[in-house]
């Protein structure tokens, strides 16, 4: 079973919003119709986005750390939004685990947004249907694109490669290795939704150098004492041999 997902490295994300912008650009130009923008040039612009980057400050000054936190649909393995949908518009694809909304079936009752603990779904105020991240399902299988570009728009846009994309069920994949080796974790694991998207934690790269490591412990000088000083009165081999 394939489960496509994103792995987002919070250690690398710089909060530039390139993923947000590219996601919006790709998905607003897609066949499913535009993602609405309301008052885009007004003082309180709003609209539908699949992906947003939030910023948190962790700790107390001066010991603070800034965490940029990209947030989109996590494509849960057990998505709570799917069973509550009365029309079947919300569904999880068997073949790749992507959670999608059929915009032609959605009645805009918003019940799925109540059922998603992450707030990953947003209603399109113009089309009045529920929208959410599709993992760029209209990109990743498009064979007219070069293979390297068959990835979600956000992944391609990320300048720091903080976003990885792949099959989290395949233990050999890049994303599985990242989760396994770099402490990847799901959000709100307490609800049993088993999000497929994982986050990699902030990590400090530090080298611990102990004092004794500065001195060569296997130094023969130290181990066996100083080399015996030469007795100047004694005969050397050279003396004996210098006939």
């Amino acid at each position: 079973m394939t489960q496509l997902a994103l792995v987002i490295d919070l250690n690398v994300c710089v909060g530039c919003h390139a993923c947000v912008t590219n996601c919006k650009q790709w998905n607003t130009s897609g066949s499913a119709g535009p993602l609405v923008d309301e008052r885009p040039y007004g003082k309180d612009p709003t609209g539908t986005f699949f992906n947003r980057v939030q910023t948190f400050e962790v700790g107390e000054f001066p010991h603070t750390e800034t965490v940029h936190f990209p947030k989109s649909c996590l494509h849960c393995e057990d998505p709570p939004c799917v069973p509550v949908c009365p029309t079947g518009a919300s569904y999880k694809r068997k073949e790749d685990g992507i959670v999608l909304v059929d915009y032609d079936k959605c009645i805009g009752c918003k019940y799925c947004t109540w059922a998603c603990p992450y707030g990953a779904r947003e209603i399109d105020e113009k089309q009045q249907v529920m929208k959410k991240c599709t993992l760029c399902v209209d990109r990743i299988y498009d064979e007219t694109l070069p293979e390297a570009e068959r990835k979600p728009a956000c992944v391609l846009a990320c300048p720091t490669s903080a976003r990885l994309f792949g099959d989290v069920h395949d233990p050999e994949s890049e994303v599985s290795a990242a989760i396994r080796e770099q402490g990847g974790y799901p959000l709100m694991p307490e609800w049993g939704t088993q999000p497929s998207n994982h986050y990699l934690p902030r990590r400090k790269t530090k080298m611990k150098i102990h004092k004794d490591e500065l001195v060569r412990t296997d130094n023969p000088l130290k181990k066996e004492g100083h080399l015996p000083k030469v007795d100047e009165n004694e005969n050397f081999l050279e003396d004996t041999a210098s006939w």
């Binding site: 309180d44 609209g47 948190f56 105020e125 709100m188 307490e190």
Partner: peptide, 25 residues
């Protein structure tokens, strides 16, 4: 908030919500 973003710290402050003029959320 700690389980929501997965950062284990008692002191977390939000600085940006990802949208200026509000959103559906």
């Amino acid at each position: 908030l700690a389980s929501a973003i997965g950062v284990r710290h008692a002191q977390i402050q939000q600085k940006a919500q990802g949208a200026m003029g509000g959103s559906f959320n």
